[in-house]
Design a protein around this nucleic acid. Structure first.
Lengths: 213, 213
DNA sequence: ATTTGATACAGGAAAAACCCCTTTTGAGTC
DNA sequence: GACTCAAAAGGGGTTTTTCCTGTATCAAAT
């Protein structure tokens, strides 16, 4: 029987290569390629004439992260099956990725047997919903009416600059905007992300992978 | 030939189990145990009558992190060979771990062949110094005379509380200290860690694993 | 017995962050 | 052209953070 083809996208080569061994030990799968960021992955997908049966995608990557990559896939290969591999259980991130069409989301502290199950489910049933995901999706449904919080370009740029010793005035300078505008972004983000201080923003930026430590 | 015994301490089971496969594929090694935090590891070492040839130790762990674990080893099993597996290249952390007797420090984005080399070097030569480590150690030597920055108990407790929306006054309340004392800790840490704002402290707390996201 | 050093704490002030409320601008709609 | 809506910017005020300098205490070193 032909083996299912899996592609791994993760910047930690040690993890990526180790994971390859683990997956190969399951028997039914082969790793057709390993990429260290979204950019490389996109290049690979575009130059390849055969779509992988499954993509294992890391969220935190220095160059083109999981969310950007997922956004590209959603535009260009909407049917590609993707299982997200992440280290954070940040709700906003999870919801964002699921909305972009990810078929499953698992944390790296999952045990191998569950991981195997997740792979099987995504390839054969089209999705894998752990208890974590299910409960988050439920929450999301329940507060469906409260408008959600899509961050815009400027807010995202602002967030990438928040994890530093820079003052808001300095950030305003870098973005060629008035300090008052930045103050507006700040206030908006406080509401959207439900935090009360700049440190809260910084935590979000890290959790969401917007800022790479 | 008898295989070398390796123990993996890492809270990410998926990584830990994958790594096991990778290491086993090298041929000369066997994974004698896998633990998900320092506490478990200490229990294991104490109950075991045979020391492993090598411990692969993660830095960021929720319960008893790499630094605490290394400190325990330094007191109780000073000759145990340990190779640190980390995701951060924070200098202070690296220096701290090396001073506690770690025989090597590698980042998780290392490629497998280098990883294999690192294992071999630590087991057979007693240490592995990548270019990264070497340069950091050199830096450390060069500014040898500037007194280093051992953080004390209170400062560490303070740092664990910094990654929040709390004000300093609130933190002072939690620690039963005057806000002015907290202000003193802050000023000291600014100097020791070479940052200029509370966000800088938060970044350090995360990078060093003091605060788990 | 004095010095030294670390720790807790204070006064006071400037800068930055936080908050609320209003105005301007610009792009798209009717 | 008038209308709407969101982004950009400003006025002005409170709180928090940051910074500098200085004092009281206690224990260890000389």
């Amino acid at each position: 029987m032909k083996k299912f083809k899996i592609v791994i996208v993760d910047d930690h080569l040690l993890f990526s290569n180790s994971l390859k061994k683990l997956i190969e030990s399951f028997g039914d799968y082969e790793i057709s390629n390993q990429l260290v960021n979204g950019r490389q992955f996109v290049d690979y997908i575009q130059s390849s004439n055969e779509a992988p049966d499954l993509v294992l995608l890391d969220v935190q990557m220095p160059v083109m992260d999981g969310i950007e990559t997922m956004a590209w896939l959603s535009d260009n290969r909407p049917d590609q099956k993707v299982l997200i591999l992440s280290m954070t259980d940040d709700e906003t991130t999870i919801i964002q990725l699921l909305k972009l069409g990810a078929k499953g989301y698992i944390l790296k502290d999952i045990d191998p047997s569950k991981f195997k199950l997740a792979i099987e489910k995504v390839i054969h049933s089209g999705f894998y919903h752990s208890e974590l995901i299910s409960s988050i999706m439920l929450d999301e449904m329940n507060r469906n009416h409260e408008k959600v919080n899509p961050l815009n370009e400027k807010e995202i740029e602002f967030l990438t600059k928040i994890c530093s010793d820079k003052t808001y005035k300095e950030i305003a300078g870098e973005m060629y905007l008035s300090p008052k505008t930045i103050d507006g972004y700040r206030a908006n983000l406080f509401k959207k992300l439900n935090v009360k201080s700049r440190v809260g923003l910084a935590m979000y930026a890290i959790k969401s992978g917007l800022f790479k430590i």
